[in-house]
């Protein structure tokens, strides 16, 4: 989640979400490399679509992005963060299924995951420069953090519940459609913060569609 938020901070949520949505191709790559599965020509085509989507979004002119000036220099375009998040989501989808066989209910699985995340995040902070660690304007941040946490709760539980019913690849592919919802909400609710250009919408459709193709072909 940390790299995803770094991506949101640098290139905005409407651009980060579709790039993170490339997760299914990494899940497939993991299955090929680790589990020895083979891909069909249609799946290669899907991977091509995902890559085209990422390139479409990443190749956008920096002026069109919502990131603060000067924040793009250290990590190129800033697209690397949501891309790493997509890699993680792909690998996690395989580990998720194994984890779920060791807990008796989806709710308990979510609780264990959140508890361990909460223990780990403060340690992670020390990898960041001091000024980027614990700035939190409570009065203005909580009105957004509280609904973010509550909506993430519903989402997390839904994922664990869906995974507990098996069919992990299809479930994770459907979850990646969230990037299309993000683009829609960005247009409706984030007009002041983000400009959603046509190429972002096209990139989002290519990424999600390609990911679905890889899994379902």
């Amino acid at each position: 989640m940390t790299f995803y938020l770094l991506g949101i901070q640098r290139i905005g949520v409407a651009r980060s979400a579709p790039i993170k949505g490339s997760g299914p191709i990494f899940a497939t790559a993991f299955a090929v490399l680790v589990m020895g599965e083979r891909l069909t020509p249609f799946q290669y085509l899907g991977i091509g679509l995902v890559m085209a989507g990422i390139i479409t979004i990443s190749a956008e002119k920096p002026q069109a992005r919502p990131a603060a000036p000067g924040k793009l220099s250290a990590w190129g375009t800033g697209s690397v963060f949501p891309l790493l998040s997509g890699v993680s989501a792909g690998i996690a989808s395989n580990i998720f299924k194994i984890s779920m066989t060791h807990v008796p209910s989806p709710l308990l699985g979510v609780w264990v995951g959140v508890t361990e995340g909460l223990l780990f995040y403060p340690l992670l902070a020390f990898l960041f420069p001091r000024k980027n660690r614990f700035r939190f304007e409570a009065r203005r941040a909580w009105p957004w953090i509280a609904p973010a946490g509550l909506t993430a709760m519903v989402a997390l539980y839904s994922v664990f519940y869906a995974v507990s019913l098996r069919q992990v690849p299809i479930v994770f592919t459907l979850v990646q459609t969230s990037s299309l919802f993000v683009i829609l909400f960005s247009v409706l609710m984030l007009r002041r913060l983000e400009r959603v250009l046509r190429r972002v919408i096209v990139g989002g459709l290519l990424t999600v569609g390609g990911g679905a193709w890889v899994i379902l072909a």
């Binding site: 949101i8 949520v13 609904p147 973010a148 909506t151 989402a155 969230s178 909400f185």
Partner: peptide, 10 residues
């Protein structure tokens, strides 16, 4: 709901 969460986090 992930999308709603992302927008709030933004």
């Amino acid at each position: 709901f992930y999308a709603l969460s992302d927008v709030c986090l933004r």
